[in-house]
Nucleic acid binder design. Structure first.
Ligand SMILES: Cc1cn([C@H]2C[C@H](O)[C@@H](COP(=O)(O)OP(=O)(O)OP(=O)(O)O)O2)c(=O)[nH]c1=O
Ligand SMILES: [Mg+2]
Length: 493
DNA sequence: GGGGGAAAAATTA
DNA sequence: TTCCATAATTTTTCCCCC
């Protein structure tokens, strides 16, 4: 769909420069054929401005087609979930398990579970497409899911869709980028390496000075939040596989459903194939908001400045609260036995356990998990470790922080998604944070200064609330430092 | 080469 | 037989042009 918008001022839209005359999203079809919703702001501009309101978010061409032929398809008001009730009826085709796994499953598992060399050999259709989807990534409660089976179903359900075509073409672009990076990596000479080595180690020393390990950072994250609220209000859903969302898209699923591989951000019709008994429940944002507010009230008692990052996730700094209690403890205990002050870790854990109990009470029985660590990046990762209804503490000293982080796959780090994960793996062979650290010189050689610097901070387990400020500091430091030319020379790619 | 600025992509809940 | 969200935020890419 040629959504040509005469964007006023500035650069001309790229379509006018010989780019393909069709939508770059899922609609790969020329002009009016497109019936797909698109997320591009430019498309939204064309679709939304002429007709007021309805038909929002579709390509211009698509809007016409849809309005003429498919009236009752949901028009984008309210939220993304389907409004009608009739869409709950599906053909039995959808319910048929896709892989009649009888023995063939074994061989499949044997071949695909083997890590390592998936390079050129395994170009076979469908074997390696999991990385195209967000929802094939690990998630709490999916430990013993048969991943190869899930991936197969996902592939079977997706392979002919425009969505899949789009994802694949994106992936192809990334492969090119990866290829370029590999070449760049080849060009890393010994002399370059040694100059990078000194640069990086200077940076490490600088960063090391910023390290502060006695801060008590806590991330609280509700367990399968939307689903938990729905189950609270409708207990008979509790022991059944259930998902919040619609046949189009699932917001989240309860643990029972996760056993089947059903996950956040998975299209409902695929989930249904994975788990034919799956029950769909529509989302109720008012309830989630209301419950979230009640949780927030509790959290504020512990940290008045606590930040709610979404309806189900909050960041708290409990340094003060914990040290206050340590003082209290010591003074009361001193009267009796005059013992030493309670360990920071122990007191912090105690406070968080108490906090979680209060959250559970205030929210009407919802459980949450928490991560405690010297900084929020670690705390966020830790909050996932003991999920559900548990807490994980990273002891408040340098070695523990580094050991914890280095054991993690890079994908666990907030900010590293499926693209960066694949890049790191295929260019540098990096899968864990420990490897990230080992390959830091290579990273500095190949990536943008911004990326490599950020990754170094990750690898060192150093994090401050204001990474942007840290970046600015670094820029000025490099600018007036020894060799500005050096610093800018690896700006490419 | 690199500044400036917009579009596109990546990431997150 | 079809059915793959969305908004916010941040970074990277792309293009024009000096
Ligand atoms: C990841 C994700 C979450 N959400 C919503 C639904 C989730 O309940 C809510 C919180 O997200 P999460 O905390 O990522 O997931 P969760 O709370 O459902 O499960 P977990 O036990 O692993 O923490 O945000 C989406 O709408 N889309 C998404 O892609
Ligand atoms: Mg959660």
């Amino acid at each position: 769909c040629s959504a040509s918008t005469g964007v006023a001022g500035g650069a001309l839209p790229r379509e006018q420069k010989g780019a393909p005359a069709y939508c770059k999203y899922w609609c790969q079809y020329p002009d009016q054929t497109c019936i797909k919703r698109t997320g591009s702001p430019r498309h939204r501009l064309t679709a939304a401005s002429p007709t007021s309101g309805s038909g929002s978010g579709r390509c211009a061409g698509a809007g016409v087609v849809l309005m003429a032929e498919q009236e009752e398809e949901e028009v984008g008001d309210g939220f993304w979930e389907e409004e009608g009730e009739e869409e709950e009826v599906y053909s039995p085709e959808d319910l048929k398990p896709v892989a009649p796994d009888t023995g063939g499953d074994e061989s499949l598992r044997a071949t695909t579970a083997e890590p390592g060399d998936q390079d050129e050999s395994a170009k076979v259709e469908g074997s390696n497409t999991a990385h195209l989807f967000v929802f094939t990534n690990d998630k709490a409660g999916m430990g013993k899911v048969d991943k190869s089976k899930v991936n197969k179903v996902v592939y079977e359900m997706s392979k002919d869709s425009a969505y899949f075509a789009h994802a694949s073409s994106q992936d192809k672009k990334n492969d090119k980028r990866i290829h370029d990076l590999r070449e760049k990596l080849q060009s890393l000479s010994l002399s370059r390496r040694s100059s990078l080595a000194s640069e990086v180690s200077a940076l490490e020393i600088k960063l090391e000075k910023q390290r502060f390990c006695r801060r008590v950072c806590v991330v609280v994250d509700m367990d399968c939040y939307y689903a938990a609220v729905e189950m609270r209000d409708n207990p008979h859903l509790r022991d059944k596989p259930m998902a919040v969302g619609g046949i189009g898209m699932i917001s989240t699923a309860n643990y029972k459903a996760r056993e089947y591989g059903v996950r956040s951000a998975m299209p409902g019709f695929i989930a249904l194939k994975l788990c034919p008994e799956l029950i769909f429940v529509r989302s109720h944002f008012d309830k989630y908001k209301e419950t979230s507010d009640r949780v927030l009230t509790v959290l504020r008692q512990y940290d008045p400045h606590c930040r709610m990052m979404s309806l189900d996730e909050a960041y708290l700094d409990l340094t003060e609260e914990v040290s206050r209690r340590q003082v209290e403890e010591t003074s009361s205990k001193a009267n009796l036995e005059g013992g030493a002050q309670m360990e920071l870790e122990e007191m912090a854990s105690r406070v968080v356990a108490e906090l979680r109990a209060k959250v559970q009470e205030a929210s009407g029985g919802l459980t949450c998990s928490a991560g405690l660590a010297p900084n929020f990046r670690l705390a966020k990762i830790a909050s996932d470790v003991k999920k559900p209804n548990g807490q994980c503490i990273v002891p408040f000293h340098r070695e523990a922080a580094i050991a914890f982080l280095h054991s993690m796959p890079v994908r666990k780090v907030g900010g590293i998604g499926k693209v960066m994960e694949k890049t790191l793996k295929e260019v540098f062979g990096v899968e864990t944070v420990a490897e990230l650290f080992e390959k830091r010189l290579e990273l500095f050689h190949c990536l943008t200064p911004k990326s490599s610097h950020w990754l170094l901070r990750v690898a060192l387990a150093i994090h401050h609330d204001d990474e942007a400020k840290a970046m600015a500091e670094w820029k000025t430091a490099v600018g007036d430092g020894e060799d500005a030319a050096e610093a800018t020379s690896f700006q490419s790619v």
